[in-house]
Design a protein around this nucleic acid. Structure first.
Length: 300
DNA sequence: TTAGGGTTACAG
DNA sequence: CTGTAACCCTAA
């Protein structure tokens, strides 16, 4: 009754894609149980995941090479819980924050965006930190070392990472993004990362699109189906090949995102490309991680 | 639990 | 009215 239709947010889609990348298509329940995704997908059932995955891939079917692979965030449910505020836009941030930026924290060269960020979209590290804390989901907050450990497991931080982390935590704490209590950090209630997901979802939904085109739609189309194909292939690669592919994917995502950013703030095509590329890079890292560290859990 | 088919809710 | 996305039902 209350909810007309619970549309999927970008975070949820990203989590789903990452989940599929990690456990494969069909293991919806498994994906849902992974603490990494359970927080973002807590409002979705395994069946929802399956249906959503079907929808996301349905768009890409049929031969043609002219996909649009949109993201599905465009209609606003003028019913009850969206509207107002948020209008301040965020023009710059929706492309760069997703479930996590799976890329080396060092080496970021395309810092062209947020020339001046009025609100608080953060750098990649900031995002990663927030995600780490959110995913750790410790009611009393998390210690710096815990956060560091989490991030080290998920990414490939540079050697001076610990130092950077300390600085960033301090920074976030003083800016109000984080609340420090007894040497533990918690996410501030006002932060878009705080519990659940609505605030950010609203921000994303209010972004308006421009009738803008980036050259031609098919200049650099990396569709979801292609991403899946790449992923499938990667599963059979050697660790070395996978590492190389992952590195390439990251570089590519970086380039595409920079390009998209420069070309247009909200062009649909560019956004789709950037997302697909990022999804691939993200998936690549997960694959790598699984390969180097754990083994898939046995499932009946 | 999952895959697939069918239904409902919306936007254009 | 039509297409799409979320949601529901059921067989396996």
């Amino acid at each position: 009754m209350g909810v007309p239709k619970q549309r999927w947010t970008s975070e949820e889609e990203a989590a789903l894609r990452a989940g599929v990348a990690r456990y494969g298509v069909g293991n919806w329940r498994t994906i849902l149980k992974d603490p990494e995704f359970s927080s973002t997908l807590s409002y979705r059932s395994n069946v929802d995941l399956k249906d959503k995955w079907r929808n996301m891939n349905a768009i890409v079917t049929t031969s043609g090479s002219r996909e649009k692979g949109r993201t599905a965030v465009k209609k606003t449910r003028t019913t009850k819980n969206n509207d107002h505020s948020t209008a301040i836009s965020t023009v710059t941030s929706d492309v760069d924050d997703e479930i996590a930026d799976a890329k080396p924290i060092a080496s970021v060269s395309s810092e062209a965006r947020n020339t001046s960020n009025p609100k608080k979209p953060q750098s990649r590290l900031d995002n990663i930190i927030m995600e780490a804390i959110k995913n750790l989901d410790e009611p009393t907050g998390s210690h710096r070392t815990t956060i560091a450990t989490y991030i080290e497991e998920q990414y490939w931080p540079p050697s001076d990472f610990d130092h950077l982390l300390s600085a960033k935590l301090k920074d976030l704490a003083s800016s109000g993004e984080l609340i420090k209590v007894n040497r533990k950090y918690r996410i501030a209630p006002s932060s878009p990362y705080s519990e659940g997901r609505s605030p950010k979802m609203l921000l994303l939904e209010d972004v308006k699109r421009e009738p803008f085109k980036v050259g031609s739609d098919d200049s650099k189309t990396l569709t979801r189906s292609q991403v899946d194909a790449e992923l499938a292939r990667m599963a059979t690669m050697s660790a070395e090949e996978a590492a190389a592919a992952a590195a390439r994917a990251v570089a590519e995502a970086e380039a595409i995102m920079a390009e998209a950013e420069a070309a247009a703030r909200e062009a649909e095509a560019a956004e789709a490309d950037a997302e697909a590329a990022k999804a691939f890079a993200e998936a690549a890292f997960f694959t790598l991680k699984n390969r180097n560290a754990a083994k898939m859990m046995a499932q009946a």
